[in-house]
Design a binder for these strands. Structure first.
Lengths: 120, 120
DNA sequence: TCCGGTCCGTAAGATTATCTTACCATCTGT
DNA sequence: ACAGATGGTAAGATAATCTTACGGACCGGA
């Protein structure tokens, strides 16, 4: 028990759960897809279990997120600035072009309607 | 058939060693910096030992590389993608968090609604 | 050549984490 | 209330990792 830096671990566990739910998957589904058991996934998200690098890659693929975001690493790209942006953009890529166009207009409307928060 | 898809693992181990040497560190140095023993690092690079997500982050920091590269993941999925997606991401970054949340749910619903062609 | 030092790979027993199965609580829709 | 699904947790069996140690390969100096 030489827990010296639980920050990263907590971040990972939180994001594992968040990404899973956003992907619309249950722990059981994930377990079956990764060839694991339900309790394993449960304790992974609880932080009571390690997540190997292989599992990390598989989870990232399943949830359509990057391993960098899962482990809380900051890259210098656009997606890294806002964690959820990558996920959202990923979803956008699956839309039909016409839907994407519509969504872009909607986004512009939302932004124009409520400008605020941070500048720059 | 013990080795059917060792791509990811082989890639990780190979890159672990490559990154370490490029960083000018010995296994002993890495072991001490991570609070491990020399044999552990040795077997990590040999692929006979798992690398946890925490260790992965620490190693990436030590070697000054990204975890995405270590595991063989393509980091920048966004920037290299369609210009339209990039534009969409820019719009997303201007949204308020609550709006982004709403949008994520909407996207998840759209994807869930559409017929899927079983992925990875 | 011989020596001292460093680096790395590997083995065997002790230690630890993980797996497997099972049970329980909660929530939802009928 | 019932049935189904989801998620948290416990205990023994299992498999991994840790710890220590030994040995080989390499390099520069006497």
């Amino acid at each position: 028990m030489t827990d010296q830096a639980p920050d990263k671990r907590t971040q990972l566990t939180g994001r594992l759960r968040e990404a899973r739910k956003l992907a619309g998957l249950s722990q059981g589904q994930v377990a079956k897809l990764l060839g694991l058991h339900r309790p394993s996934v449960s304790e992974m998200e609880a932080g009571n279990r390690r997540v190997s690098s292989e599992e990390l890659s598989q989870l990232a693929g399943l949830y359509d997120v990057s391993v960098a975001w899962l482990v809380g690493e900051v890259a210098d790209t656009l997606d890294a600035a806002d964690p959820k942006l990558q996920l959202a953009a990923r979803e956008l890529s699956k839309l039909k072009p016409e839907d994407l166009e519509r969504l872009l207009k909607l986004l512009a409307a939302m932004r124009d309607d409520a400008p605020d928060t941070k500048g720059a």
